[in-house]
Each structure stands twice: as C-alpha cells, then as structure tokens.
Write a protein that binds this DNA or RNA. Structure first.
Length: 136
DNA sequence: CCTATGACGCAAT
DNA sequence: AATTGCGCCATAG
C-alpha cells in the first residue's frame, strides 16, 4: 500500500480513472496518465495496477480487482504487457470474458485491436465540464 | 541511505 | 525494424 498521502492520492486517481473504461473496451497506461494530467508517468499507472489488491484478499477494500477493471488497461502497442506469463494469460482470460478478442503478435504477445476496442477520450467523461478555471 | 527494477512510452539512434 | 536512453517514482533489497 502507498506510504505517503501523495502516493495514496495518485493511486486513488488512477483507480478511479480506470473505472471509467467502459465494459468491453480497452485503453493504455499512457492514456490513463494523460487523463490525469501526468503524461510522463504511464509507468506509475502500471505500479498502481501492480499493487491493486485482489478481491479475495481484500473483499471490502474500496479498490480491488473486483471494483477496478484492471484488465482493460494494456500498453500503447496494443498488447497485454508481458510482465509474467501467468499474469498476461490471466488478463487475456478476464478480458476475453467481456467480449474482447485477443490476438497474437509475432512474438506471442497477446494483442487487442484499438480500432475495434480502444477507448481514448481526451478527458474523463465525469470531469469533462468540471474545469472552468481555465482562464486563458 | 543508496541502488536496482519495473503491468510504460516516446524520441533518437 | 530493433535498441537504447531517459523521465517517473513506488518498492524491494
């Protein structure tokens, strides 16, 4: 778990943003970072998902693998990040269960067609009209 | 405390 | 087309 307030806020922001991804769609780590206003930190988005507690482990946690659709986040190349054979295979299964077709790259990477399943809004749907402090 | 590593991504080689 | 370098920063050792 995050050890500083600042980190906790970041984790929560990432989890909330991921929750905005529609069922059956996917987006990238980089896009989540962009939506949050930190285009230079796609890697930190990965850190958050990496530490997302499993629902079985923390059933009542606000953010866990059950409440956050972590499977809808893949890398900018349109592939499920390799990390470990296990994790990627699991993500393929969960993602496939919501109707997303998983392909295979030349190196065996599990791929998703962004043209078909991609979700890349420029701003978070729930925040699109929230900021008006944009004075110039 | 300091170094290494990584569910990333992009520019420059 | 494939690598390398770099930014970022939470964790692990």
């Amino acid at each position: 778990m995050p050890q500083t307030e600042e980190a906790a806020a970041w984790f929560a922001a990432v989890y909330q943003a991921v929750q905005e991804i529609p069922h059956g769609r996917v987006t990238s780590y980089g896009h989540i970072a962009l939506l949050l206003g930190f285009p230079e930190r796609p890697r930190q988005v990965g850190v958050c998902l990496k530490h997302l507690p499993s629902a079985a482990d923390q059933p009542s946690a606000r953010y866990n693998s059950d409440t956050v659709p972590w499977q809808r986040v893949i890398n900018a190349k349109g592939a499920i990040s390799p990390r470990g054979a296990n994790g990627a295979a699991n993500q393929e299964t969960v993602l496939g269960q919501e109707g997303v077709a998983i392909g295979r790259g030349s190196l065996g990477e599990r791929t998703v067609d962004f043209e078909t399943y991609g979700w890349f809004p420029s701003r978070l749907p729930s925040r699109e009209g929230e900021d008006e402090s944009d004075s110039e």
